[in-house]
Design a protein around this nucleic acid. Structure first.
Lengths: 237, 237
DNA sequence: GCATCATAGATCCTATAGGAACTTGTAACC
DNA sequence: GGTTACAAGTTCCTATAGGATCTATGATGC
């Protein structure tokens, strides 16, 4: 945890001359959420309120609020009088549940998107796929993280193309990519993923709902198979 | 804490002699969550931190924490420097999305439960159905609330019977019954609901996965039709 | 050597105080 | 009558202080 005080104005969070559009607690929330999603804070790591207060040079109050929100988000766990801990790394059971839910939700998501996605949304998804084809710069860990981020962006854009806010929220809540991205490090980046995304988007583009659902189902099953090895378990089906 | 610790008669949180298993912020969270889920706090109502602090006779700190958690839960909304508001009543769009997601999730839920529900879990669901058949005591509003609570309990038990924690969480997060129960007041209590629950459970009991899914799908479609009138919109499909 | 107890330090939790921001009411002006 | 400016009151937000709880370490007794 490094100090955030980078501004000569004395405020940790930007110019004192600009009107505040958010409050400190919101900003702390975003900073901590980012660190948790990016695994800058390791899964299972202790999060000390006093420590964060010192590091971020703010009082405990906004820290507590931010952590309370993150608890409800499922990103941290809290034990009374003991403090907060970053949610643990995904285990085999959660992995299985996660893919089971994804295999229920995301083919339907693709099908719905095939029904009503706008040309603009489709173009945006094409751009995301093109971006995924660009060789990634940087060393191993960072490139896997970037890949996972692109992967997540494609799935997120597809959900948004359904126009069903509750689908977007439901998938966001599962946080598949934040939970799975570390597994990419073991199994490597898969060109297959990009091709599978392309097949999903082709079906969406030609308004083939069943095709989109099938392509997404195949993508998820393959993804599960690729990642399962990283968990030290063989694929079960 | 001195005021609460020495105040036996007026303590909002029970006996001062019992060891505290939770902290004040947790208890405030439960109290407020209960009031929001039960609509004791009206949808759209202002929630004043200072007001709650005075009413509950605690400082603003645990109030703020509890509200922060409830914001992430989706039960309240917050505007910086303006305060918190109870989440608004369900509108037609959210209603449509809610049933769309339920029709995706809950037939699968019933199917999964048909696969692995234990006899004990099935018996518990039978008990819940029997309870729903008991004529409800009390006046209109309270009986509709009780009915909605029983309805929710049956669906919750079914989700638990899948053994998939993420399914339980996902359905909990949608909070269908807390959002819909007010609509029961307009359309009345439906004996059909009980019969539909019975059909779902019969299929689960005989391990008929497709039958369970179909029965749940029929139940949700019928429920949607019954409740849609209360929204001032005709059923669209 | 092991178990128990006491102590110190760290951390968590809540109350309180003070400043910032917002809302409402009133007076002055056109 | 409508508009603008200002003041007062209310509420939100954060820092600080103090007490409660937990953890680790050392001392003592068996």
């Amino acid at each position: 945890m490094t100090a955030v005080q980078t501004n000569t104005a004395g405020s940790p969070f930007g110019s004192v001359n600009a009107p505040r559009r958010s409050v400190l607690a919101d900003e702390i929330y975003e900073i901590l959420k980012s660190k948790l999603m990016d695994n800058v804070v390791e899964p299972g790591a202790r999060l000390s309120i006093d420590g964060l207060s010192r590091d971020l040079k703010v009082s405990a109050t906004p820290i507590r609020e931010a952590l309370a929100r993150l608890e409800s988000d499922g990103l941290v766990t809290k034990r009374a009088h003991h403090g907060y801990t970053a949610a643990p790394l995904i285990d085999a059971r959660t992995f299985a549940e996660l893919f089971r839910m994804r295999l229920l939700l995301e083919p339907a998501c693709a099908s719905w998107a095939a029904e009503i996605a706008t040309p603009r949304q489709i173009t945006a998804m094409e751009d995301l796929i093109a971006e995924m084809k660009t060789p990634l710069a940087g060393d191993g860990y960072e490139s896997y993280k970037a890949f996972a981020s692109q992967d997540a962006a494609f799935h997120g854009a597809l959900a948004a193309a359904t126009g069903v806010g509750l689908m977007v929220e439901t998938l966001e809540r599962l946080r598949p990519h934040a939970q799975l991205y570390r597994l990419y490090y073991t199994v490597g980046i898969a060109d297959d993923t990009v091709r599978e995304h392309e097949r999903v988007l082709e079906a969406v583009t030609r308004r083939d709902q069943a095709g989109a659902a099938h392509a997404m189902s195949a993508h998820l099953s393959a993804s599960r198979g690729r990642l399962a090895g990283a968990l030290g378990q063989p694929e079960t089906d």
